[in-house]
Structure formats: structure tokens, C-alpha cells
């Protein structure tokens, strides 16, 4: 049973890390600010959720799981609003979206 749990934790952590890597790749490679924001925010939130889930499974204490869930919700809220504010400012500055 513990091997199964450890495997699940490992899988979740690695998938979360892959999502973070994907978000960072998007930040580096996408052509304009809106697409970069989109990649970074979405991928990082999902990655954090998977990592938090893996940590929760690994630790097992219900108080810690609650705090990890709160962490994920707060980071999502902050990330969402930051992304919105950055995109709004970029739009006000007049940056246009990338076209093919």
C-alpha cells in the first residue's frame, strides 16, 4: 500500500514539475505578452495543484492537507488577479495580439 502511495506521490510531483516547466517554456517562447501570461498562469496553477496534492498524499495529516488546499486557492487567486492586471495594462498601453 505504501509503495502505491509513494508511486502516486512521485507521479503527481513529476507531473506538476512538468507543468511548471511547460509554463516557463511558454514564458520564454511565446510571441506576445497575452499568450505568455496565459501559458504562465494556467500551467503554474495546475502544476502547483498537482504538487500540493502530491505533498498532501505524502504527509497525510488533515490539518496540513487543509493548509495546502488553502495555499493553492490563495496562489490561484493572486495569480489570476495579477495576470488580469498585467493584461489590462498591456491592453491600455496599446499592445496588440500577435497574428500569424
Amino acid at each position: 500500500m505504501t509503495e502505491l502511495l509513494d508511486a502516486a506521490v512521485l507521479l503527481l510531483a513529476v507531473t506538476g514539475a512538468i507543468f511548471f516547466l511547460g509554463g516557463s517554456l511558454g514564458l520564454l517562447r511565446f510571441p506576445d505578452v497575452y499568450t505568455r501570461l496565459h501559458a504562465l498562469t494556467k500551467a503554474d496553477n495546475v502544476g502547483l495543484g498537482l504538487l500540493a496534492l502530491g505533498a498532501a498524499l505524502h504527509l497525510g495529516d488533515p490539518w496540513l492537507i487543509g493548509r495546502l488546499a488553502l495555499l493553492w486557492i490563495l496562489v490561484m487567486a493572486a495569480g489570476t488577479v495579477s495576470c488580469h492586471l498585467l493584461a489590462r495594462e498591456a491592453h491600455r498601453e496599446g499592445r496588440t495580439s500577435w497574428r500569424r
Binding site: A77, A78, T80, V81, H84, R88, E89, R92
Partner: peptide, 18 residues
């Protein structure tokens, strides 16, 4: 000069009590 939007006010309602 830029006003705070509804998203910022919503964040305030969620985050300040927490």
C-alpha cells in the same frame, strides 16, 4: 490615474479576511 477594477475588489473580499 488607473482605477481599480472589480477583480481587485473581489480579491480584497477574499484575501483580506484570510
Amino acid at each position: 490615474s488607473t482605477e481599480a477594477g472589480p477583480l481587485q475588489a473581489g480579491l480584497l473580499r477574499l484575501v483580506v479576511p484570510v
